[in-house]
């Protein structure tokens, strides 16, 4: 049984698979996938998560609204959130961090970079 559970929220199936593929190298981590913000809230209501990785630009509910909702959720308000996005501008980063995101990575992603950040947020050696 995995020690940690991570929710990956990404509307691009290919990008989602790429992130899941990278995360598969952390053996103690199990992954749950969501297509967008609304789907993510449903998954969050049904379980406990140790880490949330989300894109920003998604249909129905974007990543920033999702971060805001998570930070006001009693169960997951303290769960670390990592943003993976194409938005590389400094103001986008500042906005996401101000809303409560813990890490901000821009695409294209490199798996080692994502893994290092994931281990840092989960405090895994």
């Amino acid at each position: 049984m995995a020690d940690f559970t991570c929710l990956v929220v990404e509307d691009s199936p290919m990008m989602r698979q790429l992130i899941v593929f990278a995360l598969s190298r952390v053996k103690t981590l199990s992954v749950v996938e969501a297509d967008d913000g609304v789907d993510a809230l449903k998954k969050l209501a049904g379980g406990r998560f140790d880490l949330i990785i989300t894109d920003i630009n998604m249909p129905i509910m974007d990543g920033l609204k999702l971060v805001k909702r998570i930070r006001s959720d009693a169960v997951h308000k303290d769960v670390p959130i990592m943003i993976i996005t194409t938005e590389g501008a400094a103001e986008d980063r500042q906005r996401a961090l101000a809303l409560g995101a813990n890490a901000y990575i821009t695409k294209p992603i490199q798996a080692p970079q994502v893994l290092t950040k994931v281990k840092e947020l989960l405090k895994i050696d």
Partner: peptide, 14 residues
């Protein structure tokens, strides 16, 4: 669509 995603997500082509 897959080529599009590969170029955007893996290479960073806009």
């Amino acid at each position: 669509g897959t080529i599009e995603q590969l170029l955007a997500q893996l290479v960073g082509t806009s």
